[in-house]
């Protein structure tokens, strides 16, 4: 007997974490993204690759509740509500879900951190947002996480303005993982960093994703990052998903002309 895809989704132990149906976003005549559908399970890392203008950032914003789509649905298995269309939730509920169940790591740490507040407070804020009120416990948790992202603990009370780019990004990662989210969105998390800093950060992220059993959606234009981090890939061009599959398959045996172009364009050193 051969298992079919249908039988898989019935398996209770493997409830989809995220289910996207025919997601589209148009800006008037301009297509942001078109007819995107996929599913994600807990512990999976999905890479969205594409060049500038491919629609990947639009897609990420629609998926993370920041941009209502023109058509389609985004269903997430929220801890409070179960599987729910995120745009059907009231805004307070959606915002709370974003705080409780999700993380969002921005490309530029300045967009994801409070620059005028200490590094430790930035990380502890995620806990305070969840209603925690014990300073000592929160500070310790914050220290533990800063340690985990390999930040010098003596800098915990300094403001992120005084950190390097790599350090700022580490704080952002800690801030987005300390509350044990189910799903983390990452928008080019290592873009703009030095190569060696990038490499170490990617290691760290890989380890954390594996240790925490996190699900993550990672948007990147860097194929090497995609290969390293993602279990599955979606390749986007002009707003459409042109190819999708396991990372090693998409990169080793690309079918779509655009994917072949992307893969062959990657410089080998």
């Amino acid at each position: 007997m051969t298992l079919t895809a249908q039988q898989e989704t019935v398996d209770q132990a493997d409830q989809p974490l995220l289910r996207v149906h025919s997601l589209s976003k148009h800006y008037g005549m301009i297509t942001g993204c078109r007819d995107v559908s996929f599913e994600m399970r807990p512990g999976e890392v999905l890479g969205i690759v594409g060049e500038s203008g491919s629609g990947k950032t639009t897609l990420l914003n629609c998926l993370s509740g920041r941009l209502p789509p023109s058509q389609g649905r985004v269903e997430f298995n929220a801890s409070r509500h179960g599987l729910v269309d995120i745009y059907n939730l009231s805004e307070p509920d959606r915002r709370r879900m974003q705080r409780e169940d999700w993380g969002f790591v921005h490309q530029n740490p300045r967009d994801g951190l409070r620059m005028r507040v200490s590094g430790g407070a930035n990380v502890a804020e995620s806990l305070m947002n969840l209603g925690r009120r014990h300073y000592g416990d929160m500070r310790q948790a914050s220290l533990n996480w800063l340690n985990r992202v390999e930040l010098d603990l003596s800098r915990i009370d300094d403001k992120p303005r005084t950190y390097s780019g790599g350090m700022q990004q580490r704080v952002q990662i800690a801030r987005n993982l300390i509350h044990a989210p189910r799903l983390v969105f990452m928008d080019e998390p290592t873009g703009g960093l030095d190569v060696s800093v990038q490499a170490r950060l990617l290691d760290l992220m890989r380890e954390l994703v594996r240790d925490l059993g996190l699900a993550a959606i990672l948007v990147t234009h860097d194929m090497a990052v995609a290969r390293l981090m993602a279990d599955r890939l979606m390749v986007m061009k002009s707003g459409a998903v042109v190819e999708t599959g396991l990372t090693d398959q998409v990169l080793d045996d690309p079918q779509h002309p655009y994917t072949q172009l992307l893969v062959s364009s990657v410089l080998q050193i």
């Binding site: 307070p92 915002r95 709370r96 409070r114 507040v117 804020e125 500070r139 915990i156």
Partner: peptide, 16 residues
């Protein structure tokens, strides 16, 4: 939205 975590951030900064 009754999202007052930020105020506690300010108190945290005080204590630290």
């Amino acid at each position: 939205y009754e999202e007052y975590g930020l105020q506690y951030v300010s108190l945290y900064e005080n204590v630290s």
